[in-house]
Structures are given as C-alpha cells and as structure tokens.
Amino acid sequence: MKFVFDLDGTICFKGVPVSENLLQCFEDIEEHGHEIIFASARPIRDMLPVLHERFYNHTLIGGNGSLISKNGKVIFSNSFTDEQVKNILSIIKKQQATYLIDGIWDYSYTGPAGHPILKNLDVKKLAKSVSINNLRPIVKILILTMNNYDEFLSELKLLDVVIHQHSNEHTIDISPQNIDKANALKTLGITDYVAFGNDSNDISMFKNSIYSVMIGDHKELSYYANEQINMDEDCEKNIIEKLKEIAQKRFEKPAIQKN
C-alpha cells in the first residue's frame, strides 16, 4: 500500500522537521512492503528542510501538485501560462498585494519582512530570490496581504486557476488549472493510496483515496475523511498507531462515498 502524507499541520508543525519517531515508523512500514510519499503545498525546495536526508529520494509532490520529485530530481512541473501570469499580476497590482511566487526552484518575495512564512522559506539556501520579471516558469502563487480580501478573491475566481483559501492565515494559494495533489498522484500512475492531511488542499487527495485520516479539525475536509486524529499531545503517537493499524488492512473499495 502507498501512504501519502501532507507535511505542515499533519506530521510537522511550525517549521519543525518531522520527528525521528515518525521517520522510523515510516521506515518500518516500508520494510513491510509499503511506500511512503510526501505531498505538500511547499515547493520541493522547502520540503527538504523538514525531512531527513535519507528521505530525499522518496517521491515528493510539491506546490500542491505542480512539482514532482523522484530520486532527488524534479521529474514533472506544470506552470501558469504567460496570459494567466499577466492577469494575476494585474490583480496583484490593483490590490497592492504582496506575495511569495515560486518557480521550479527560485522564487520572488514581496511580503512583510517579519512575515512568519520567511521562517520556512529556502532554509537551506538552495535557491535565489529574484524579481518577478526574471522568474519563469511560475508554478505556484501565494498571496500574503492585499487591500481587500473578498474583492481579490472575486476577481481571481474569474480566471482559469485553482484557488485554495487559508482562512486562518488570511492567505490565498493559487495553482495552474487541474493542478492538485490527486492529479499529481495520477500522473505517477498511483490510484490506490491512503491519505493523511489537515487542510483544504488535501480535499482532492482525500476524495480519490481508498482511505483517509484527517489530522485536527477542518470542516470541508472532514466530509471526505474516514477517520480523525485530534491535534493534542498524543497526536504523533496516535498517527504512528493508526499508520501501523492501517498497514495491516486490506482495502477493496473506499469505506465511504467520497464524490
């Protein structure tokens, strides 16, 4: 069985790397013939700092599905068209928005100097910060601040792009059309998998999984989750126990209707 894990808010928190207890559990599971895959909103560049080096050659899905890395190399990327970039930048200018915009490796950042996202941005100094005019292709756009959130969102919804709202942080994630974690897994030929996640960008993955476990509480995601693990002091221990339990199961079809 293939197990697909989101990172932030699921198995790592506030930029702290995935714990050794979890990593050892993943290795134990793989010794019994299973496969561990990581799928994150982070680009590949920013997934590496929260994973130990011995997992760098695993399948990594970054940018909400716009990037795929295997054996330490990016093997797939999907980017915005020039017209989409032009339209989004027009809205950004109109709304005086700030952003983190990712290329395959490099990035462009205009957000506040003290924004929390900087703690997780290119921690290993693997990329370059460049002007948006010099960043192509563009695979993911994160809007950090804007004059009017609702107006920005309304204009954005007129474009042919994928939008994820992070209401707690009041940010907006934008990806090219048809880009999500589930489609990235399909690109890899993976259709049967167990998913662990915590946020709206995990919905597509949950809907297409044969079993899914939600970490914490998210109203929209909960509709597609088979199980929930509370976000408390026992969360990590419960994830490990649940992973070991599911690894012993045999799945023939999803336990709940997810469409």
Rank of each mutant, 00 (worst) to 15 (best):
M1A: 06
F5P: 01
F5Q: 01
V16D: 07
V18D: 03
S19R: 07
E20Q: 14
E20H: 11
L23I: 11
Q24N: 08
D28W: 08
F38V: 12
S40M: 11
R42V: 05
I44D: 07
R45F: 04
R45G: 06
P49V: 03
V50A: 11
Y56P: 00
N57S: 15
H58Q: 10
L60C: 03
L60A: 01
L67H: 06
K70P: 12
I75G: 09
I75T: 09
F76C: 03
S79Y: 14
S79D: 13
T81H: 00
T81F: 00
D82T: 10
E83S: 13
Q84A: 12
V85R: 13
N87T: 08
N87S: 15
I88Y: 00
K93W: 05
Q96V: 10
T98F: 08
L100G: 00
L100M: 10
P112V: 06
A113P: 02
G114E: 14
P116N: 06
D122L: 08
D122V: 11
K124N: 15
L135A: 10
L135F: 03
L135W: 07
P137I: 00
P137G: 00
I138H: 05
I141Q: 01
M146V: 06
N148I: 07
Y149R: 08
D150H: 09
F152T: 07
L153E: 08
E155T: 04
L156V: 08
K157Q: 15
I163W: 01
I163T: 02
S167A: 13
T171V: 04
T171Y: 00
D173H: 09
S175P: 02
P176A: 10
N178Y: 11
I179G: 01
A182K: 11
A182I: 09
N183F: 12
L185G: 05
K186C: 06
T187H: 13
I190R: 04
D192E: 15
V194P: 00
G197N: 11
G197Q: 09
S200W: 04
S200N: 14
S204M: 02
K207S: 14
I215Y: 03
G216E: 05
D217G: 08
H218L: 05
L221F: 03
Q228N: 09
D232E: 10
D232A: 12
E233D: 15
I239Q: 01
I240E: 06
K244Y: 14
Q248R: 15
Q248H: 12
E252I: 07
A255Y: 05
N259P: 01
